[in-house]
Amino acid sequence: MIRRSRPVNWLAARAGALTLLLAAGACTGDLGRPRQDIVSQLLAPQAGFWAATARGEAASHFRFTDDEEQLRDRAWRFVMPGHERSVFQAQTAALAHARILPAQLHLGYRAEYFQALTGGSFASQASRYARLAEDANADRILIGPFRANAMRVVAADRVRMRAAETSPDVAPSQLDPAFARVVENEGLILWVCERVGFRIESYRYALANLVVEMPSREAIRAERAIMALEAEAGPLCKMPLIGVFGGERGGAAGEGDKRPVTYKG
């Protein structure tokens, strides 16, 4: 099991004290990624580590590699709600992304995107279909870079665990945080895959209800954009992982199943 290195009550109190601050600072920068400031760079990772540890989840104190940092930045787009009017869900997503809240609490409902899409003022129904198509296309364009980034992280994690478990120069105390980081990385990849699937469901729900409410030829463009997004999402959700969550998607047989996993994100 992943050992807890600090008292649970103390960790929970520290994480809880920062939750409101981080929620208030959950702003976005370029490309929808978290803004690079003291909140996203220092406070959020520390509070997330304390909160995850307090919940008994795998949490590593290791510094992030460049690819791990980039993976978390790229994940931001997909774990956030599909429309900026979903303010509450955006705050929940930001806290889950920082691991202050468990990912299971960030659920949402598929009608939310449609409600946000039709809740504002638009010149015509064409603009609603155009926004839907633009959102689906933007997701599609960003999935490829995320997948490539994820593949680099998974490859590095295989090297990490091979060195941690076989090198006589690695202290035993390094093994748990190394495995915890692998769990964190793989958990994030699986979460993004889940959220991409949820986005596709939300887009399809929105399209169907738009067609019922205000039929338009623009629906064809939106439908094609969603289909293209589905095609791009397929390889992401089928990429070989180490398999630390006990699934059948691991790379080498048996890898990742050597230790019980406590991370639930």
Rank of each mutant, 00 (worst) to 15 (best):
L105P: 02
D257H: 15
V244N: 05
A163G: 00
N185A: 09
Q41W: 06
V196F: 00
V39N: 05
F49L: 10
F179R: 15
L18Q: 10
D135F: 04
A23P: 00
A15L: 05
W76K: 13
Y129N: 01
Y113Q: 14
D257R: 11
R160A: 07
N9P: 06
E255W: 15
V159F: 00
D176T: 04
A52E: 05
I200T: 09
S167A: 09
G234D: 10
R14L: 12
Q125E: 11
L42Q: 13
T262D: 12
Q104T: 11
G187V: 00
D139A: 09
V159G: 01
L21N: 02
Q36T: 11
E165W: 06
E255L: 06
F146D: 03
A111S: 15
L11M: 11
A23S: 08
L95F: 07
Y113I: 02
I141L: 10
V8M: 08
L105E: 14
E186R: 02
S124N: 07
A180W: 03
R221N: 14
R77V: 15
T53S: 13
L229T: 08
G265Y: 03
A44R: 04
L107N: 10
E194D: 11
A155P: 01
R128M: 15
I189P: 01
G25C: 01
P177G: 03
L132A: 08
A126S: 13
A96I: 08
S216L: 06
C27W: 03
D169L: 12
A231V: 15
A94D: 13
P235M: 14
A163F: 09
K238V: 06
R4E: 13
L207K: 07
R128G: 06
A47R: 01
C27M: 06
P168Y: 01
C237T: 11
A222C: 06
R204F: 07
F49I: 04
V244M: 01
Q89V: 02
I242W: 02
P172A: 07
F179W: 15
A59Y: 00
R249V: 10
F64D: 14
F146Y: 15
V192D: 04
A75C: 05
A138L: 13
F198K: 11
R3P: 04
A96H: 02
T118F: 00
A23Q: 14
Q46L: 13
R110S: 10
M151Y: 08
G254C: 12
G82R: 03
F146I: 03
L229E: 06
R162K: 02
A222T: 05
Y113M: 09
T65W: 12
G119H: 03
